[in-house]
């Protein structure tokens, strides 16, 4: 436990920046008197908990304390319960410039590997939280069918495997490095797919997500985002284990790190 004694009296007695000003003398005199009384009464101790929750308050502003997301903006991805390796690879990608979201790059730029691992493990340990399934009201049936087909079967003609082939039959992710898709917002999903397509988001070569998304039209990307966002999550849904015997359709660099 890290405990910090706040030195009220000591600070009050320290020199002011401009001791010549009468009003500053008066102000410091009052502070000094208060400080002496404060110290005479009870020492004030501010305890900062030595927990990852506390250390990662900076992340909580957008991702929630446990990676559950925030109500005021659905764009920020939910991190809770995602595969640890996946989360670690993302932190590293922000740090190394493969992912370019300015705010994230700024915050992780001077973290070392060990700390990024610890941060990733923290969110991976948390129980998954899901965005409630998005309504498909008003979406053309053809769009929904196309989305469902791409997610569940892929498109052999385009050479696109099903999302579910790697991300799990219920899109729950696959340990240790394939992220969960169910429970993510449509805006986040389509933004990421667009990023894979135009190169704004990249992964370690062979960059299989780029290969796949490059073959999709923007209409296809929309359809996939709509379909995935409409899928319900559940508290019992766990990422598929790494030992799953099913062979993956593509070789991805981030699976081999």
């Amino acid at each position: 436990m890290e405990t910090t004694q706040l030195p009220h009296a000591a600070r009050a007695a320290s020199p002011t920046r401009r001791p010549g000003r009468p009003e500053s003398w008066a102000a410091w005199l009052i502070v000094a008197i208060l400080g002496v009384f404060g110290a005479g009464g009870k020492a004030v101790a501010a305890e900062v908990p030595d927990t990852m929750e506390q250390r990662l308050m900076g992340c909580a502003a957008c991702h929630g304390v446990h990676g559950e997301g925030v109500a005021y903006n659905q764009f920020y991805p939910r991190l809770s319960g995602k595969s640890a390796d996946y989360l670690y690879h993302q932190l590293k990608a922000f740090k190394d410039g493969q992912r370019r979201y300015t705010q994230m790059v700024y915050l992780v730029r001077f973290m070392d590997d060990a700390y990024m691992r610890e941060v990733a493990d923290y969110y991976a340990r948390q129980a998954p939280h899901y965005e409630p399934p998005a309504s498909t009201e008003g979406i053309a049936p053809a769009v929904l069918q196309r989305g469902q087909a791409l997610v569940e079967q892929g498109d052999a003609q385009l050479g696109v495997p099903a999302c579910a082939a790697c991300h799990g039959t219920r899109l729950e992710g696959r340990d240790p490095a394939i992220p969960r898709l169910v429970g993510m917002s449509r805006s986040y999903l389509t933004a990421q797919l667009g990023g894979w397509k135009n190169g704004a988001r990249q992964a370690v070569a062979p960059d299989c997500m780029h290969e796949v998304v490059d073959r999709l039209s923007t209409a296809d990307i929309e359809a996939v985002g709509i379909w995935i966002a409409s899928r319900p999550g559940s508290d019992t849904l766990q990422a598929e284990p790494a030992s799953a015997t099913q062979k993956l359709p593509l070789v991805c660099g981030s699976m081999q790190q």
Partner: peptide, 9 residues
């Protein structure tokens, strides 16, 4: 090695 952080506003 494990710094605390301040959120963006």
């Amino acid at each position: 090695p494990r710094p605390y952080s301040m959120p963006p506003f």
